[in-house]
């Protein structure tokens, strides 16, 4: 379809497969995400997108297949090791610490990368050295007015924004965003698109989204997943007009 891209591959999977007690959620997936691109992963609910993210970030071990980041094999690494390899993820279901405020969240993330979390003999005031950077990031995602508000009290869209701040705090080379705009109103969706565009410079982004406006605005390439398998891949326009994709999505619509 597309001519081979001359740029190096940032994230790559070969023959990635995941069985859940006999149910094959991800089947023999090959994926190549080019360095510096924004790559969308689309497909109906249950297609295996989140499972693929969980595999790529070490949250679940693959049944078969390999994963490489910038040519380094990371198959079998733990999530924290993969985070230290420069691959950060957000969660589809907002996954925060309810009693911590946005600044404390980001401080925790910054410390996670910088190290020093095991120092049980120090006062937690040493975390203050992350404060400036943390507040910058909180501002970056539009939560400047809410730095002190416990995450449990944030509105849904604000929590999604905080998820983004946490991913950014890791200063990753590769970011995996699982449905960053799910459940957002139009305004927040546009803000998120602008944010992803801004942070994507110099980074590689893979994101899952059901909103075709988001996919169309952001993605350089799109991979369509269906029942755990890659159904199609290419640019947004190529995929949008692909016969198999249309059939699959129409089939999906007729169920709904």
């Amino acid at each position: 379809m597309t001519p081979p891209d001359p740029r190096p591959v940032a994230l790559s999977a070969r023959g990635l497969t995941k069985d859940f007690r006999g149910f094959r959620a991800v089947k023999d997936v090959d994926l190549d995400v080019v360095d510096g691109e924004v790559h969308a992963l689309v497909g109906p609910n249950g297609a295996g997108k989140t499972t693929l993210f969980n595999l790529l970030t070490g949250f679940i071990p693959p049944t078969a297949g390999t994963i490489t980041v910038h040519g380094r094999d990371i198959t079998g690494r733990t999530p924290e090791q993969i985070a230290h390899e420069g691959v950060a993820r957000s969660f589809q279901i907002t996954s925060l610490f309810d009693h911590l405020n946005p600044r404390e969240h980001v401080e925790l993330a910054l410390q996670g990368m910088a190290g020093g979390g095991l120092r049980f003999w120090r006062s937690d005031s040493v975390l203050r050295r992350f404060r400036g950077r943390a507040e910058e990031l909180v501002e970056e995602v539009g939560l400047a007015d809410l730095v002190e508000r416990p995450a449990g009290e944030l509105a849904y869209g604000q929590k999604r924004a905080l998820e983004m701040a946490l991913v950014l705090a890791l200063d990753p080379k590769v970011m995996l965003l699982d449905e960053p705009t799910a459940g957002m109103g139009r305004e927040d969706v546009d803000r998120t698109i602008a944010l992803v565009r801004r942070i994507a410079t110099g980074r590689t982004v893979v994101f899952v989204d059901h909103n075709m406006h988001v996919v169309g605005s952001l993605a350089d390439h799109v991979t369509v997943l269906m029942a755990g398998e890659v159904l199609a891949r290419g640019t947004y326009d190529e995929v949008r007009t692909d016969e198999r994709v249309i059939t699959a999505y129409l089939g999906e619509d007729s169920h709904a």
Binding site: T57, F59, E80, F91, S95, L96, F97, D98, G112
Partner: peptide, 15 residues
């Protein structure tokens, strides 16, 4: 406390 409240997230942050 972070690992207590949300271990998966703590891992994703590199802990």
């Amino acid at each position: 406390v972070a690992t207590r409240d949300n271990p998966a997230r703590a891992r994703a942050l590199g802990y």
